[in-house]
Amino acid sequence: MGRRRSAIRRPRGAVEYGAAALVVAAVASLVVRLVVWVGEALVRWWPVVAVLALLGLAAGVWRAVAAAREHAARARRLSVLRFSLAELDAMDDRQFEFALRDLLIRDGWSARQVGQQGDQAADVIADHPAYGRLVVQAKHTKVGAKVGSQVMYQVKGTAGPAHRANAATVVTNGGFTRDAREWGERHAVGWMDRERLCSWAERGVPLHQILQLPALTRRRFPGAARRPQFAAPYEQTAPEGRTDGLR
């Protein structure tokens, strides 16, 4: 059997009550003396105390201003963020995921990198007030490689049940098989191949425009609350006088 926990027993009899009263009086006396000593020290050394308080306040304000400036500078950098395809090709898998996260932040999403072992087909999760939650599966591969339908199945199977997402897409610096593209468009899983990635990362076209994500109030995506379907595939148009890399 375990040891019984000891409890404080109430005093019994006049002697014990008297001893308890003496202890309380001694503690109260010490507290009063401490308060008096602190008060006298403050009165005697108030200029030093005031200077220390001002220094502490100034340090706090300086840290807050520095943090605000850093946040504003990062926001400015992200607002014009661009990655060339060559830069994306040179990245490793993890760097590619962080690059996609930053591109989403540039487009106004609140995004975080979550890719790791057991990530349930999500490398980046992003939230947007107009489009809800987006799950991104990143496939950094060789330029000529193609993503197959199996990846689309996995993303579809976990986006709603596991991540409560309103939309999902697979992004690669390579390509997709025709079956993968067609299956994704039928089952509301977006796809972003090398050509679309160039428009997003290098030319600055927002992801929601490329995938034509509908607003939350337009349609439902079966399997999660208020989950819209993807719209028709994005049609790219070349700027006047430029046709390179576009259909």
Rank of each mutant, 00 (worst) to 15 (best):
G13E: 12
A14G: 11
A14D: 15
Y17S: 15
G18N: 12
A19C: 12
A20H: 14
A20T: 14
A21R: 14
A21V: 08
L22D: 05
V23A: 12
A25K: 02
A26N: 11
A26T: 10
A26W: 14
V27M: 11
A28G: 01
A28Y: 00
A28S: 05
S29G: 03
S29Y: 01
V31G: 03
V31S: 02
V32N: 04
V32W: 03
R33C: 12
R33W: 11
V36Y: 14
V38D: 14
G39Q: 06
E40F: 05
E40T: 04
L42N: 10
V43E: 15
R44N: 07
W45T: 00
W45G: 00
V49D: 13
V49A: 13
A50I: 08
L52A: 06
L55Q: 10
L55G: 08
L55M: 10
G56R: 09
G56E: 13
A58N: 07
A58S: 09
A59Q: 09
A59G: 10
A59Y: 10
G60C: 05
G60V: 06
V61Q: 13
W62T: 11
R63M: 11
A64T: 09
V65S: 09
A66L: 09
A67M: 07
A67H: 08
A67T: 06
A68H: 00
A68G: 11
A68E: 12
R69L: 14
R69T: 15
R69H: 15
E70F: 03
E70L: 07
E70H: 07
A72P: 09
A73W: 08
L78Y: 03
V80I: 07
L81N: 03
L81E: 04
R82T: 11
F83P: 02
S84K: 02
S84R: 06
L85A: 12
L85V: 13
A86E: 06
A86S: 09
A86V: 02
A90H: 05
A90E: 04
M91N: 01
M91R: 01
D92C: 04
R94F: 00
R94D: 02
R94W: 00
Q95I: 00
Q95H: 13
L100I: 01
R101I: 08
L104D: 03
I105L: 08
I105D: 01
R106C: 02
R106F: 01
D107V: 01
G108D: 04
G108L: 01
G108N: 02
W109D: 01
W109R: 02
S110E: 09
S110W: 07
A111W: 02
R112Q: 13
Q113L: 04
Q113R: 05
V114Y: 05
G115E: 13
G115P: 08
Q116T: 12
Q116D: 13
Q117H: 10
Q117W: 12
G118L: 00
D119T: 04
D119N: 06
A122I: 06
A122Q: 07
A122M: 06
D123M: 02
D123C: 05
V124W: 04
A130H: 12
A130L: 15
Y131E: 03
G132V: 07
G132F: 14
L134S: 09
V136I: 14
Q137E: 15
A138Q: 10
A138F: 09
H140D: 02
A145V: 06
A145K: 08
A145L: 00
V147F: 12
V147D: 02
S149Y: 05
S149G: 00
V151Q: 14
V151K: 10
V151H: 13
M152N: 09
M152P: 12
M152F: 13
Y153A: 00
